[in-house]
Computed example of a mutant assay.
Amino acid sequence: MCREFIDPSFAWKNFTLEEQAKVIVAPRSNNELDATKLKTEFPEMLSIKEALVKFVFEPNKKTEIKG
């Protein structure tokens, strides 16, 4: 999404957990939120990707200047 909406030339490099452990103070955990109950209560709720596009990227899209 970063390349699509912000910078098409953006690139990143993944690193191993061992490399990560060398640069952070506390160990990290990878957790996933289960939004099943929220979805049941609020069926109109957008996914995180859809919400980012609708409320962050699209409203802030730069307009092209035609010369």
Rank of each mutant, 00 (worst) to 15 (best):
V25N: 03
E19I: 06
K54P: 03
E64H: 08
P43R: 09
D7M: 07
P43Q: 08
E19D: 02
A26R: 15
L46W: 00
K39P: 00
N14W: 15
K13M: 06
T16P: 02
F5M: 05
K39T: 12
L46R: 06
Q20E: 14
F42Y: 11
E44V: 14
M45L: 04
M45Q: 03
D34I: 02
N30F: 09
K13H: 08
P59F: 00
A51F: 00
T36V: 07
E4F: 09
R3G: 09
N60V: 00
T40Q: 09
E58M: 02
K62E: 09
K54Y: 08
E32K: 04
R28S: 12
Q20A: 09
F10V: 03
A21C: 05
M1G: 04
T36M: 02
F42E: 10
V25F: 15
L17C: 14
A26N: 10
I48D: 02
N31T: 08
E18H: 04
A21D: 10
P59V: 02
S47E: 00
P27M: 14
G67L: 06
T16I: 07
K13E: 11
W12M: 09
A21G: 07
T63K: 15
N60C: 10
P8F: 04
N30Y: 12
I65H: 08
P27G: 00
F15H: 10
N14P: 03
I6G: 12
N30P: 12
D7E: 09
A51N: 10
L46H: 07
K49M: 10
F5E: 00
Q20Y: 02
A11N: 10
T16E: 05
D7N: 07
R3Y: 02
D7L: 05
K37W: 05
P27H: 08
K37S: 14
V23A: 05
V25R: 13
E4H: 12
K61V: 08
S9P: 03
D34Q: 03
E4N: 15
F15W: 02
N31I: 05
P43G: 05
M45A: 10
R28D: 14
E41H: 15
A26V: 09
L52I: 00
P8Q: 10
K66A: 11
T36C: 03
F42P: 00
S47H: 13
A35P: 06
M45V: 14
A35W: 15
A51Q: 01
F5V: 03
E58W: 01
K54S: 13
E41Y: 11
I6W: 15
E50Q: 06
P27Q: 01
E41R: 09
C2Q: 15
F15T: 10
L46Q: 05
I6S: 10
E4A: 12
N60D: 01
F10Y: 14
K37F: 08
E64F: 14
I24T: 06
T40F: 09
F42K: 13
C2K: 07
I65R: 04
P59K: 04
G67W: 13
N14M: 15
K49D: 12
W12F: 14
E4V: 11
M1A: 15
P8M: 08
N14V: 14
K49R: 10
F10Q: 14
V56I: 13
T40A: 11
K22H: 01
A26Y: 13
Q20S: 13
M45S: 05
E64Q: 13
N60M: 12
E58C: 04
T40W: 01
E18S: 10
K62S: 15
K62T: 15
